[in-house]
Design a protein around this nucleic acid. Structure first.
Lengths: 146, 146
DNA sequence: GTTGAAAAAACAGAGGA
DNA sequence: TCCTCTGTTTTTTCAAC
């Protein structure tokens, strides 16, 4: 893991669909060498996936919320959450609550319906997202990767 | 926006580096037609980015936390957060706190240092992530896209 | 890690349902 | 309008070094 690997990670975080030929030009290294480094980064589990980022708004999801949840049956709660399309992220946390989840719904009204659906499993506190200042900041600052 | 577009979004969320030729085979449509649909999905802002997902653990970030923050100077706080490498996501929220942020640090100790660094700007409550049940669930359920 | 040739994929234009 | 077909260019893969 050297500066070149960090540069590859940085570029792949910016645009995962960049052609390897273009990447090799940018970092001034032959294309097969870059491809081989990328393969190793995947193999080592440093790169876990390549994902298209979708706009929730454009897909009709106009409400984002974080919901803190307290339940006594963690296993059932995780199973329920996996089957719940509204829940996009689920974290087990320390403190008064067991779980923190990120929830996307069409409207505040459908968020209400979702919370009703959850209520048999425990009790919750909802934090409505007013705006997203930023998301997915790179773990590999570009100035470190030069 | 029809079933084919949803299938494209679903496949791109699973693997953003899938070759267009393979995608066109999967959905049984010619490659230029799929490319054109993808171009339009990007143009409409439905696809906002393609990102490599990196493993925080493999990059030495062993501690994940959500920090609720209350500050009276939102503008300065956002500027501070943008410059803070530990903060990967920042949301403005309703309720007792102004902000919710996702924070990645090397250890619980460096999380402590980070919180010390933030303390002049307001007051906070920290939720330590014990484990991530799941993250980035698709906004386009695959069964809807068939 | 580099080079260079073969295979594959992406792109761009013409034409059809 | 949206798709398919086809030829051209670009990219990827894989050999040898």
């Amino acid at each position: 893991m050297d500066q070149i690997d960090l540069k590859i990670l940085s570029l792949m975080h910016e645009n995962a669909r960049i052609p390897m030929s273009e990447m090799s030009r940018t970092i001034a290294m032959s294309q097969p060498a870059v491809t081989e480094r990328l393969r190793k980064l995947e193999e080592q589990g440093i790169i876990t996936a390549y994902r298209a980022q979708l706009s929730p708004q454009k897909l009709g999801k106009h409400t984002t919320a974080f919901v803190l949840f307290r339940t006594s049956n963690c296993k059932d709660f995780v199973a329920f959450s996996e089957a719940c399309p509204e829940i996009v992220d689920l974290y087990r946390i320390s403190g008064e609550y067991n779980f923190l989840m990120k929830v996307l719904t069409e409207t505040t009204e459908s968020l209400g319906s979702f919370l009703d659906k959850c209520s048999p499993l425990g009790f919750s506190t909802t934090l409505i997202v007013l705006s997203t200042a930023f998301e997915d900041k790179s773990l590999v600052p570009s100035h470190e990767a030069e």
